[in-house]
């Protein structure tokens, strides 16, 4: 008898806690984001694994929630708008770039730009994303070596169209509604747990110690080539007498 009472009490508590949670209108998120940088050199890929542990996918779909990743690219790196347009066309990645990106500039001439990656999926429990990006050339320095490019931490945004359950998050922010970027919407900036964060890469930099050697050899080879060709003209002459 006591057991039955006990069980029913537990059951009641369980139910009430659930009811309490939803009554509070608070849809809280428990998200894990794993970030990795793949490839080497100037052309890299940012790999993300997004795992939405709570709430479950059905709740998200019921509330018509959508996620977006907002990443602020520092001057040392850039995303190529043409490349992203290609991925969009192939239906691989839906993105929007907030600012104009000049892909030809070097690091210290460039400015930041923001990329929004919109996540479209039926299964939020595990979403993997790949964003190709590129390192910019950096100013050459004495003793050469490598320059650092540090990526910023991405922001995870969420927005639910059906307001059946309210979000617990209070920090709202403005961001484009979708990859077209025509309109701005209210998004909620949610906290997430991040794992194994690699956010830094090395970029080869020109060595100013090479300057004397390079300038002397380059310029003299250029002149020698010219002199050699001119000398051939005088040896292999075909002018009429």
């Amino acid at each position: 008898m006591i057991n039955v009472y006990y069980l029913s009490a537990i059951f009641f508590l369980y139910i009430s806690s659930n009811v309490y949670a939803s009554n509070n209108g608070c849809l809280s998120f428990d998200v894990l984001l794993t970030q990795n940088i793949e490839n080497q050199g100037f052309h890299r890929e940012l790999k993300w694994l997004l795992e939405v542990i709570r709430p479950d996918t059905s709740t998200l779909i019921k509330n018509e929630c959508s996620f977006a990743v907002e990443l602020d690219m520092p001057p040392s790196v850039f995303v190529n708008p043409d490349e992203l347009a290609d991925l969009q066309r192939l239906g691989i990645l839906k993105t929007f770039i907030g600012e104009f990106v000049d892909i030809e500039l070097t690091e210290h001439e460039a400015t930041n730009h923001t990329v929004y990656i919109f996540i479209e999926t039926d299964d939020f429990s595990k979403v993997s994303l790949t964003l190709p990006f590129h390192a910019r050339y950096q100013r050459s320095q004495i003793s050469g070596g490598y320059g650092k490019a540090v990526l910023n931490k991405p922001r995870l945004l969420v927005r639910c169209l059906q307001k059946k359950e309210k979000l617990c998050e209070k920090f709202s922010t403005e961001a484009p509604c979708d990859f077209r970027g025509d309109e701005k919407c209210q998004w909620f900036d949610i906290k997430y747990k991040s794992l194994l964060e690699v956010n830094e890469m090395l970029v080869p930099v020109g060595d100013l110690d090479h300057y004397p050697l390079v300038s002397i050899v380059t310029l003299s080879i250029g002149c020698m080539g010219c002199i050699y060709i001119l000398s051939l003209f005088s040896v292999f002459s075909k002018k009429p007498i």
């Binding site: 080497q40 050199g41 100037f42 052309h43 090395l202 970029v203 080869p204 020109g206 060595d207």
Partner: peptide, 10 residues
Amino acid sequence: LEFKGQNTFI
């Protein structure tokens, strides 16, 4: 240089 990120400028 481009794909392996090694400093091979010279």
